[in-house]
Amino acid sequence: MATPIILFELLLALSILVALATDHSPLQDFCVADAKSQVLINGLACKDPKLAEANDFFFSGLHLEGNTSNAVGSMVTPVTVSQMPGLNTLGISMVRIDYAPWGINPPHTHPRASEILTVLEGHLEVGFVTSIPENRHITKVLKKGDVFVFPIGLIHYQRNVKSTNATAIAALSSQNPGVITIANSVFGCAPNIPSDILVRALQMDKNLVTHLQSIF
């Protein structure tokens, strides 16, 4: 009789651990972000629900083409809790990404979200890199209507592989997914990472490291 009891206790303990490892469900219909609140929490404080209005749950602008005349040839238009306060506590957000011919959305990560991307127009080469020790590069060329997912935290990118513009829309599993663009973070942080650290870590010439730091 002891074995079934022990098994039950183990399953119960496992279920508790799984429950603790997931995000908490909202405890009310919504929690519209109060950007003016001085309360500091892991997220944003709620404004009085009686003061919520339609515009808190509304955003207009994803129909507009982003300006891709920049060094990487892409533009991301976000709809996170910063643009739509009604997303607060809901665990979702989205972006529109525009790509110039041959433009890229450079290698980056979202520390708090997985991303599912749908191509609206054009052809995109997409890819992500798995973690150590495998470090496997998983890549595919997508066309209009194709969908691809980037797992949370992994470095990923997109590139327009045609001489015409491309557009994609992506959903993310966080109201505030965050973004870490690899080159900007490594070479453009303030204050700089000491160049001797980067020289040794990246096996690069010090003059090249200094040059990249000056760019970013």
Results as ranks from 00 to 15, higher is better:
Q213I: 11
I116H: 03
G91Y: 02
G73W: 02
V95P: 01
G73Y: 05
K143A: 12
G153P: 02
G188H: 12
A171V: 03
A21T: 01
S174A: 02
V95A: 03
A13M: 08
Y99M: 09
N176Y: 07
F216R: 11
G66C: 09
A52V: 03
L142M: 08
H63T: 09
V81Q: 12
K144T: 15
Q213E: 15
P49V: 05
L11P: 02
V161T: 05
W102E: 09
L17Y: 05
N70H: 07
Q175F: 00
L64R: 15
K140Y: 06
I169H: 05
D48W: 03
N67I: 09
F30G: 02
P194T: 06
F58L: 14
H123E: 12
E9Y: 01
I215G: 08
G178H: 01
S37I: 03
R112W: 00
M84V: 11
T80F: 15
N135Y: 10
L10S: 10
S195K: 13
G86Q: 05
G103L: 08
V18M: 02
A45D: 12
V72I: 12
A2W: 03
K206W: 00
C31D: 07
L51F: 04
T210G: 08
I92F: 01
A35I: 06
S131E: 09
V141T: 13
A13P: 01
A35T: 10
G66E: 06
P107A: 10
F57L: 09
E65C: 14
Q175Y: 00
E65L: 15
L44C: 11
T68V: 15
T118V: 12
A166C: 10
I215Q: 15
V39H: 10
I104V: 12
P101S: 10
A13V: 04
A100M: 12
T3D: 07
A2K: 07
A21M: 06
P133H: 13
A170E: 06
G61I: 04
E115V: 13
I152Q: 15
S214P: 04
L208T: 09
C189W: 04
L17E: 03
A33T: 07
G127F: 10
P191S: 14
T22P: 00
T109L: 07
T109I: 11
N105M: 01
Q28E: 15
S74T: 09
A13F: 08
